[in-house]
């Protein structure tokens, strides 16, 4: 069964003038079709303003479709009654780590979601411990989030979502404000959760390097899904990616140029090791 299924999803933002009259309509999502199977690791790539964050907010029922339908875990997001159930089955992690941590102690923040859901006290503690351990932050459970690094804060935010025991987590540009180390940390944790706990992960990002290792990739531009396929397929379409303003990773670009100049290299090189193997340098 598909855990997330979008059919012809449209979202329009209205620009209003000072009297509240509609000045113009901005189409943020334009007939998006999307299918995610339970247990998959999905990436959505896109440049700024491509509509990828709007899509993320739809999956969490923070926005509702202007047209079309979106089902999360079999529930229609446009039905207000499903709101809380959808947010429980699809948790969301945002870009800015500081602006999504509510409490001043790590463990209290992780407990915030279960508290809202009405989970009994003993179980909250079990969940907090389990989810903090799953992101490797248990030893900081009594710390203040202000003293953690960006990557650590983001892991706490992921733990806060994991404590709600969702079937699916949506990471909306979780690495955009982090340094390279923090970025690696967060992506690694996301993959671990996917592999060990079987959580469906939807990673929204504009760094192409981060989509390596996902099961399926969607590329968005101007509110439309413009490319989809597995990472190797996507990475082999270098010119097409560039036309959608994506920065192709250097190693893929290098392999692509070498191939164009006549070297015998397959398309869609994802990592440095792969290229070294192909060139017999390893």
């Amino acid at each position: 069964m598909n855990i997330i299924e979008a059919k012809q999803l449209v979202h329009e933002f209205f620009r209003r003038d000072e009297e509240g009259n509609i000045e113009g309509i901005q189409v943020a999502l334009d007939k998006v079709d999307l299918k995610v199977e339970a247990g998959q690791f999905i990436s959505i790539l896109g440049h700024n303003g491509s509509g990828k964050s709007t899509l993320a907010k739809h999956i969490n029922a923070l926005l509702t479709p202007s047209e079309g339908t979106l089902y999360v875990d079999g529930k229609d997001t446009s039905d207000g009654k499903n709101e809380l159930a959808i947010r429980q089955s699809a948790g969301m992690v945002f870009q800015n780590p500081d602006n999504q941590i509510i409490a001043s102690i790590v463990e209290e923040d992780v407990g915030f979601g279960p508290e809202n859901m009405g989970v009994p006290t003993d179980e909250i503690w079990e969940r907090v411990e389990r989810s903090l351990k799953s992101v490797g932050m248990w030893k900081y459970h009594a710390h203040s989030p202000n003293k953690l690094s960006g990557g650590q804060k983001q892991r706490v935010a992921i733990a806060g979502v994991m404590a709600m025991e969702p079937k699916c987590i949506i990471l909306d540009e979780p690495t955009a404000m982090l340094d390279p180390d923090g970025r690696k940390e967060v992506i690694k944790v996301a993959h671990e959760l996917n592999e060990k706990k079987g959580v469906t992960v939807i990673l929204i990002t504009h760094y192409m390097e981060e989509v390596v290792g996902s099961d399926y990739v969607y590329v968005m531009d101007k509110g439309k899904v413009v490319m989809e396929g597995d990472p190797r397929n996507i990475f082999s379409r270098v010119e097409e990616l560039q036309s959608h303003r994506m920065d192709v990773p250097q190693i893929t670009l290098l392999a692509h140029e070498l191939r164009n100049s006549g070297l015998d290299i397959p398309e869609g090189i994802l990592t440095r090791e792969e290229l070294m193997n192909v060139l017999n340098l390893g």
């Binding site: 809380l84 500081d98 602006n99 508290e115 859901m117 009405g118």
Partner: peptide
Amino acid sequence: RRASDLALAMEARCYHGGEGRTKMKP
């Protein structure tokens, strides 16, 4: 801006007022 971000993040974590809320540290 932070306030609006935080409100979204709280909503995403099922915050819907004090009703039906349990306590982690009663």
